[in-house]
Simulated scan of single mutants.
Amino acid sequence: MAKPEGRERLMTVAEVATLMRVSTMTVYRLINAGDLPSVRIGKSYRLRESDVDHYLASRYTQAG
């Protein structure tokens, strides 16, 4: 099934935590601090894949 145009993949907190290799609590802290935009659906949060990518890119530093 093709993704409808204009729609983006929403990730769960657990998926984001796995991607970032941090705990789910760290992801919740980033959401509550306003550092990571999210959407609340029922009792759970969903994060757009592009928002996660943007957050990671903005925190990237080159060593050496």
Rank of each mutant, 00 (worst) to 15 (best):
G6R: 02
T24W: 05
K43V: 03
P4D: 05
G64P: 09
H54V: 11
A2F: 12
R59M: 13
S58G: 14
M20R: 08
V27E: 05
R21H: 10
A33I: 05
S23H: 11
I31E: 03
G6Q: 00
A14N: 09
Y60P: 03
S58R: 13
A33K: 13
L56E: 06
E15I: 01
D51H: 07
E15C: 03
G64H: 05
R48F: 14
R29E: 10
Q62K: 14
V16H: 01
L56G: 00
L56D: 04
T24I: 04
T18I: 09
S38I: 08
H54Y: 13
A63P: 05
R46F: 06
D35Q: 12
S44G: 06
E15T: 10
L56N: 01
M20A: 14
R29G: 09
G34F: 08
V27K: 00
T26N: 13
A14S: 14
E8P: 06
T61L: 15
A2T: 11
Y28T: 00
T12H: 08
M20K: 04
A57Y: 08
G6M: 04
H54M: 11
R29F: 09
L56Q: 11
A14P: 04
M1D: 06
L30W: 10
T61E: 15
A14Q: 09
T12G: 08
G42F: 03
Y28C: 04
T12A: 07
R21Y: 09
P4Q: 11
D53Q: 14
L56F: 05
V27H: 04
E5Q: 12
E49V: 06
